[in-house]
Every structure is written in structure tokens, then in C-alpha cells.
Simulated assay, not measured.
Amino acid sequence: MFKAAPGPVTPGAPFEPSQPPVIEGFSPSICSTPESFKEKFLRKTHENPMVSIGCLGTAAALTYGLYCFHQGQSHRLQLMMRTRIAAQGFTVAAILLSLAASTMKSRS
């Protein structure tokens, strides 16, 4: 029933895939030396070691739980799966806390 008035027509394509998008208020910083995977992994581990500890705990509980499953130790398997869930919760909490800390740090 109601027709919207057509917006202003801009010459040329609105999006050029070969060029990065222009975002108001954002100026990208170009890194002169790209990080390797190992360098980035070590930097992130030093920035927030609790996430790495949680990931290692999760992997250890899962691995030992699978070993107990293979051995037929159902009681120990259940304990390890519960431990894995606790370690995953710890990891998620560490990620959220580091995100909140970095957000508060950037606002200051």
C-alpha cells in the first residue's frame, strides 16, 4: 500500500570485492611482520594462561575417560566425563572473564 521513496542512486558498484570495506571510525593497523602460528599461540598463552590450562584439563580428562572406557571401568569413566564437563566450564568462564577484562581495559 505504501511505497517507499527510492534512495539516492550512487554511481558504480556499492561493493567492490577487490577492495576492503570502508567502515566509519575504523582505521585498520597494518602489521609490518605477520605472526607465525607458533608466535601467535605463545602470545595468546601468555596473555591468558587460564584458558590454556582449562583446555589442557579438558583434553586430559577426555583422554583418560576414553582410556577407562576402553578398559571397561565404567565408574571411573563417569567420573572423568564429569571432570571434563567441569574443565570445559572452567575454560568458558576463563574466556568470558578475559573478554570482560579486555572490554573494561579498552574503555579506560
Results as ranks from 00 to 15, higher is better:
Pro14Thr: 08
Ser106Thr: 12
Ala94Lys: 02
Phe26Gln: 11
Phe90Ser: 05
Phe69Asp: 15
Cys68Gln: 14
Met104Thr: 05
Cys31Asp: 11
Lys40Ile: 01
Cys55Val: 10
Ser106Glu: 12
Arg76Lys: 12
Thr63Tyr: 02
His70Leu: 12
Pro6Tyr: 06
Gln78Ser: 13
Arg84Gly: 14
Pro20Trp: 06
Phe15Asn: 13
Ala101Leu: 02
Pro21Ile: 11
Leu56Cys: 11
Phe90Arg: 02
Asn48Arg: 03
His46Phe: 03
Ala4Gln: 12
Met104Gly: 04
Ala4His: 08
Leu56Trp: 01
Thr45Gln: 01
Phe90Gln: 04
Pro28Ala: 15
Leu56Val: 09
Gly12Lys: 07
Pro49Arg: 06
Pro21Thr: 08
Phe15Arg: 13
Ser98Gln: 04
Glu47Lys: 03
Gln19His: 10
Gln78Thr: 12
Ala60Arg: 14
Leu96Lys: 09
Leu66Ile: 08
Thr63Trp: 03
Phe26Glu: 07
Met81Leu: 14
Ser102Arg: 11
Gln19Asp: 09
Gln73Asp: 12
Gly89Pro: 01
Lys3Leu: 12
Phe2Val: 10
Lys44His: 00
Gln71Trp: 04
Ala93His: 06
Lys44Phe: 02
Pro17Ala: 10
Phe2Asp: 10
Tyr64Trp: 08
Ala93Leu: 11
Phe69Leu: 15
Ser74Thr: 12
Ala101Cys: 02
Ser106His: 10
Pro49Val: 02
Met80Glu: 11
Pro20Gly: 10
Ser36Lys: 07
Gly89Cys: 04
His70Ser: 13
Glu16His: 14
Met50Trp: 01
Leu42Pro: 00
Val9Lys: 15
Thr58Tyr: 05
Met80Lys: 07
Phe41Asn: 04
Ala93Trp: 01
Gln88Trp: 02
Asn48Ala: 07
Gly12Met: 07
Thr83Gly: 07
Gly72Ala: 05
Gly7Met: 08
Ala87Asp: 07
Glu47Ser: 05
Ala5Thr: 15
Gln19Leu: 15
Ile30Gln: 13
Gly72Asn: 05
Glu35Ile: 00
Ala5Asn: 13
Met81Gly: 03
Gly89Asn: 14
Arg82Gly: 09
Lys3Arg: 14
Met1Trp: 05
His46Val: 01
Ile95Pro: 02
Lys44Met: 04
Met50Val: 00
Phe69Ser: 13
Ala100Arg: 02
Pro49Lys: 06
Phe41Thr: 05
Leu62Ser: 08
Leu97Gly: 03
Pro34Arg: 14
Leu42Glu: 13
Arg43Leu: 03
Pro28Ser: 12
Tyr67Trp: 13
Ser18Ala: 15
Phe26Arg: 15
His75Thr: 13
